[in-house]
Design a protein around this nucleic acid. Structure first.
Lengths: 215, 215
DNA sequence: GTCTATAGCCTGATAGAC
DNA sequence: GTCTATCAGGCTATAGAC
């Protein structure tokens, strides 16, 4: 047995091999400091292995980065924005979606991922594309589907669900999202999320309802 | 006189001294590649001077970066979002504001600045703050002032102009902004900007109008 | 597979001639 | 002020012992 041993907080991780430990350390560091500012020495140290071991699992820094990113996007895929039961009231349904959306968007992890993707977007265009498809595009699609449902049911007037979803999600972000992304607001309070979600949902319903008098 | 000479495209710049040349080269490179990926050698080369000259003007890489950023923000301050004559129709006024806002937001320069600030937001929190104050905060303020004016005139129902401005500008960004920021859409066409601005302005007016009967 | 040690390069910053 | 030449240190990646 070797002399020094770094015990992971969760023993189960040991069983998965060091590749996982390395990826998790890499994820933490890449996310918080960016690609260039994160050295392979630092990752090796954080994972409790030597640099040579690290290169035995990943053939280069770039390869490690890409493996970490793919893992992150795979995790994204699992999340579902729409609650199982949306009820019949458009406002209540949109409010529920809005709260879920904001909670997901303002999580520290998600914010760090966006910062990272944007920082590397020039160097790695395919990273931007993969991010967009796995995140924003899917969210827009889900909301558009829901809006179309409401439209078909006659509960809301949304002749163009794709554009409607874009407007609604845009409203939902607002300055709150920007401030969190910039790190100016360390964590959004639940009350703030609720308030913002309610305002946006009400505004959207209001903008869709009064279509009839036109014509 | 030295043997080799780098002629700037504009002779006038020579008169301003090399400090300006250096800052412009630094701005180009920092903006397009980020802080860490830009070396002092590269800046010196792009500015047509030696590295020692560069250090004669700026005492460190960090100092050069901050000078460049401050210059960028100073330039920001000059822009005014509101047209001189907004007219009486709320929709037309908001449409004009929307088009200006999108044009400003989607300029390559502005996109690069946002990417840069976000990338460095962890390392330089005060940079985030300066950016927010010089850009988004001022924009929100201007739009809120205009919305308050419309409200006072009774042309639109906006009891909370600050929140209204946030909703309107959020709507205005939408996926178009995100795609440009990610570099997935090299340049937004004028038609796309006009269409998006019109949709957002119409939606905002619709969400505000029905509360009080027009006239 | 895992370690220690190091190669080879690039970086930010400086010394000294002119 | 501007240059050439260079330093000291950090970086990615690899060699070789075990």
């Amino acid at each position: 047995m070797g002399a020094s041993r770094q015990q992971s907080p969760q023993m189960a991780k040991e069983l998965l091999g060091k590749g996982v430990l390395i990826q998790e350390a890499a994820k933490r560091l890449f996310m918080s400091q960016g690609y260039l500012a994160t050295s392979m020495d630092a990752i090796a140290g954080a994972a409790g292995v030597s640099k040579a071991t690290l290169y035995a699992h990943f053939k280069s820094k770039q390869a490690l980065f890409e493996a970490m990113v793919q893992e992150r996007f795979r995790a994204n895929m699992g999340e579902n924005l729409l609650p199982l039961h949306l009820g019949d009231d458009p406002y209540e349904g949109l409010l529920a979606v809005a709260k879920r959306f904001l909670g997901m968007l303002l999580a520290q992890d998600a914010l760090a991922a966006v910062r990272l993707v944007l920082a590397e977007s020039t160097r790695l265009p395919e990273l931007s594309e993969a991010f967009y498809r796995s995140g924003p595009a899917r969210t827009l699609q889900m909301v558009a589907t829901y809006l179309d449902y409401l439209h078909q049911q006659g509960r809301l007037h949304v002749p163009d669900p794709a554009t409607g979803a874009d407007l609604f999600l845009g409203q939902l972000k607002g300055k709150l999202y920007l401030k969190c992304l910039l790190g100016l607001q360390n964590e959004a309070s639940s009350e703030e999320i609720e308030r913002h979600a309610a305002v946006a949902a009400a505004a959207f319903v209001a903008s869709c309802a009064p279509v009839i008098p036109k014509k």
